[in-house]
Design a protein around this nucleic acid. Structure first.
Length: 798
RNA sequence: GCGAGGAUGGCGGAACUGGCAGACGCGCUGGACUUAGGAUCCAGUGCCGUAAGGCGUACGGGUUCAAGUCCCGUUCCUCGCACCA
């Protein structure tokens, strides 16, 4: 088993700390690692620290630089212009979550959309494989669904429309549609403002200036306002027409703000009678509608009275030879007609975009390319890797990337011609590091390649991957793609498991109620308050320092920002690592959220103390007693031993396939309760108790390793408990002589009878009739039906 | 709007394939021991009822001898996507 730990250490938190605290990201990062490593060790996790990695170490990131160069060579990574959030004041690109109400999170200046040359990895090449791979995965269905939506496969057709006259040398353009069945209902076409031909269409026309202004406005507004969801539909007529590929009619070409350039072909055929967006647009601008699908069994649609587009299924009308066809069948029929006339074809479109991996930031792995005035983009030769991130920089957060101002980093020579050249100053998105760290864990000290292929294949795939559901799409898509890429680039053998994560469990967060106060001068600004800085007055909470009233933000994920955190060092000092571990495991099933509670923690601690006293109070007797070795038992001793072995069974399954440690802990608590109730009387009884306690200690050790080791030693155990192995289940001990069987009459429990577990129906029925209370309900009635589920229930119907 | 998941005592949660709803813990109530108890131990704790008994797994219906579990509809909550043609 491989149970490694490491540090995803590049990225914004360190860079922000550098800006705010005037500390170097490297120093800040490594001091955090030190502290967190100590905390994890204190909690007693069984990590293999010999495999520890930190992604900000050049010995790690140099391999992703090498892999990226391979991708570049094979065309799986490339550079193109793309639109990004840009703060003019800070001269930097912002992530979407750094844009607040259209303003920069740091300087509150407006954020604009700017086109920059950016680096991409071709995730779209794997769109279909990402979907097909889902069949092999034992993952939560919610995660699979999210990935499917993210990838967004849709089947449809590409259809070529000719221009009335060539535009910039082009005779035609192509649209993508999922509704070829509505093709005869096209009354206009819409193209994106970013479409290369958008401006060309208007050139020389009467309203060229207007169209130009419209395009400029939409290009800037387009993305920033998309978050609002409900942006008004806007468009402008280009003055030009397209020729319908089947009817030959002329339809006007519009530019519309809701058409996206980076999906499909950036142009759509508009069928306002059968598409909500086109309907809204057509009504706004007074464009024609044409009905080509009629619903069956209701009044015919009338374009003059329609209040909404008709998007359900029906039968084709006004569609030439296709009239009368159900619209589903018409999709392929019309596509076939298009193919026959060489003006279209069936195609599949995906929402998934290529992965933008460049960031104009300091704290990340440099992208290993050089820009030469003569030779353009030149990869850094592999022998020159890694491109080290320079340490001697000043980070202010303003004026763009510090790397761009670092002369000795930027100024270099072209590997091809040796002339002066400029080094790329963008760094990788941190999702790059997290996309292959699990591969690296298999052989973390390989010097000259990312992994040792044979050994990596041996370890992979990851049998059980545990992570938060927030990684459902981005990380878990990128990591799958990177694994495919490593296989396809030859870093892993061809027979390596194609999917990197077999089973995925999304664990819940640790949560606690968070409180904030608002400044009367500036009510929008929340100041979060630590629990120790609060005081209670008249049932309300106030801050100790400013005296402002506090408001609850509810029970939310612990975060330093919201100050609803607990210091692991403090709780470990107070309750011990074992109690903390036990509490977290007991409070909820793994996928559920844990609400932090001091009372719950005390409960866990109380249980451990109960176990401790159980051993301490009987220590001398226990040490002098050998555990029960087998043989006949009766009465309470037999019951206790059955309980012991049932607990082995339950805990084993709860830690295994069921993956429900909370119920396993409950089982151990029941065993402890039974041990407290048991009165040991005589040698055999004591042997059974000794066995039960030995078992309890072993079962407890994965949950509370420190106390388990301590107790084992107190009872004369030698060495590590782990070496002793897991307790063996004695199936014989589980057997019961008699059971209490509930008896129902007409669906209600009316009595219980004591019978042998395998008693036959006649015996059980006789016993039931003999039960006084059952007899009351059977009195004077004919027995219509008897249902006997052996070992479970007897139901009588009268 | 679309998609996914969920709703069980005062609280966190159990209940494995339809078969005794509420395991275990927290909290609460009473008692014991104690100078003391926020330690420990014992008892109780879904709701109504003195009891017998009745009612109970968001709400309304259905299938079944039997439903927290299966089916249909409704409400609410959480998450994701949100002009993707």
């Amino acid at each position: 088993m491989l149970h490694p730990m490491g540090w995803d250490a590049f990225g914004m938190p360190a860079e922000n700390a550098a800006i705010e605290r005037k500390r170097h990201p490297m120093e800040w990062t490594y001091s955090n690692i030190e502290q967190m490593r100590a905390q994890l060790k204190q909690l007693g996790y069984s990590y293999d620290w010999s495999r520890e990695i930190a992604t900000c170490d050049a010995s790690y990131y140099k391999h992703e630089q090498a892999m990226f160069l391979q991708m570049l060579e094979r065309g799986l990574a490339y550079r193109k212009r793309a639109i990004a959030n840009w703060c003019e004041h800070c001269q930097t690109v912002l992530a979407n979550e750094q844009v607040e109400d259209g303003q920069c999170w740091r300087c509150a200046n407006p954020v604009v959309m700017k086109e920059l040359l950016q680096w991409f990895i071709k995730t779209t090449a794997y769109a279909q494989e990402l979907l097909d791979g889902h069949a092999k995965l034992d993952w939560p269905s919610s995660v699979i669904t999210k990935q499917k939506n993210w990838i967004g496969r849709s089947e449809g057709a590409e259809i070529r429309f000719a221009f009335d006259q060539p535009v910039a040398g082009e005779a035609s353009f192509t649209v993508f549609t999922t509704r070829p069945d509505t093709l005869y209902g096209v009354t206009f076409v819409s193209i994106a403002a970013e479409h290369p031909l958008a401006l060309e269409l208007a050139k020389g026309g009467a309203n060229e200036a207007e169209v130009r202004a419209f395009i400029e406005r939409i290009r800037i507004e387009h993305r920033t306002k998309r978050d609002d969801g409900d942006v008004d539909k806007q468009g402008i007529f280009t003055g030009r027409y397209a020729i319908h590929p089947l009817t030959g009619q002329s339809v006007p070409i519009w530019i519309a703000n809701f058409v996206l350039m980076d999906y499909g072909t950036g142009a759509v055929m508009a069928v306002p009678a059968h598409d909500e967006r086109d309907f809204e647009f057509a009504r706004k601008y007074g464009l024609d509608l044409k009905v080509v699908i009629q619903p069956e069994g209701v009044a015919a649609l009338d374009v003059t009275t329609m209040k909404t587009a008709f998007t359900d299924s029906g039968v084709l009308v006004g569609s030439g030879a296709h009239d009368g066809l159900p619209n589903e069948a018409a999709k392929s029929a019309i596509t076939a007609e298009l193919v026959g006339k060489s003006v279209g074809k069936a195609t599949i479109s995906y929402r998934l975009r290529d992965w933008l991996v460049s960031r104009q930031r300091y704290w990340g792995s440099p992208i290993p390319v050089i820009h030469c005035p003569t030779h353009g983009v030149v990869p850094v030769p592999e022998k020159d890797l890694p491109v080290l991130l320079p340490q001697d920089v000043v980070i202010t957060g303003e004026g763009g990337s510090p790397l761009a101002r670092h002369a000795s980093f930027v100024n270099t020579t072209c590997p091809t011609c040796g002339e002066p050249a400029r080094r790329e100053t963008d760094t990788f998105d941190t999702f790059v590091e997290s996309s292959w760290y699990f591969e690296r864990y298999t052989t973390p000290r390989e010097e000259n390649r990312p992994v040792d292929p044979e050994r990596a294949r041996g370890w992979l795939p990851v049998d059980l991957y545990i992570g938060g559901e927030e990684h459902a799409v981005m990380h878990l898509i990128y990591a799958r793609v990177w694994h495919y890429l490593m296989m396809d680039l030859g870093y892993l053998p061809k027979d390596t498991a194609r999917e990197p994560f077999s089973k995925l469990v999304c664990q819940g967060m640790v949560c606690q109620e968070a409180f904030y106060s608002t400044d009367p001068q500036n009510p929008a600004h929340k100041t979060w308050c630590y629990p120790e800085d609060m005081e209670l007055r008249d049932g309300k909470r106030f801050t100790k320092d400013t005296g402002l009233e506090l408001h609850s933000a509810g029970v939310v994920k612990m975060s330093k920002t919201k100050r609803n955190v607990v210091d692991p060092d403090e709780v470990v000092a107070k309750f011990g690592a074992d109690a903390v571990r036990l509490f977290v495991l007991f409070a909820a099933p793994p996928e559920g959220q844990v609400d932090w509670s001091e009372a719950g923690l005390e409960g866990a601690s109380r249980f451990l103390q109960r176990v401790w006293r159980l051993v301490r109070d009987r220590r001398d007797v226990l040490v002098a007693t050998q555990p029960f070795a087998g043989g006949a038992l009766e009465g309470a001793a037999r019951d206790l031993r059955r309980m012991t072995h049932r607990t082995i069974d339950r805990v084993t399954r709860d830690l295994g396939d069921r993956m429900q440690p909370n119920t396993g802990i409950a089982a151990m608590m029941e065993l402890v309760n039974a041990l407290y109730s048991f009165k040991a009387d005589g040698e055999v009884d004591r042997a059974v108790v000794r066995e039960a306690i030995d078992v309890l200690i072993s079962l407890l050790s994965p949950f509370a390793p420190h106390i388990a080791d301590e107790l084992s030693e107190a009872l004369g155990g030698q060495g590590n408990l782990l070496a002793k192995g897991w307790p063996a289940l004695d199936a014989d001990a589980l057997r019961e002589d008699t059971i209490e069987l509930p008896v129902q009459v007409n669906g209600k429990i009316r009595g219980r009878v004591i019978v042998a577990p395998a008693a036959d129906e006649a015996t059980v029925l006789a016993a039931a009739r003999a039960d006084a209370n059952v007899a009351v309900y059977l009195e004077g009635k004919a027995l219509k039906k008897v249902i006997y589920v052996a070992g479970r229930i007897l139901t009588l119907v009268v």
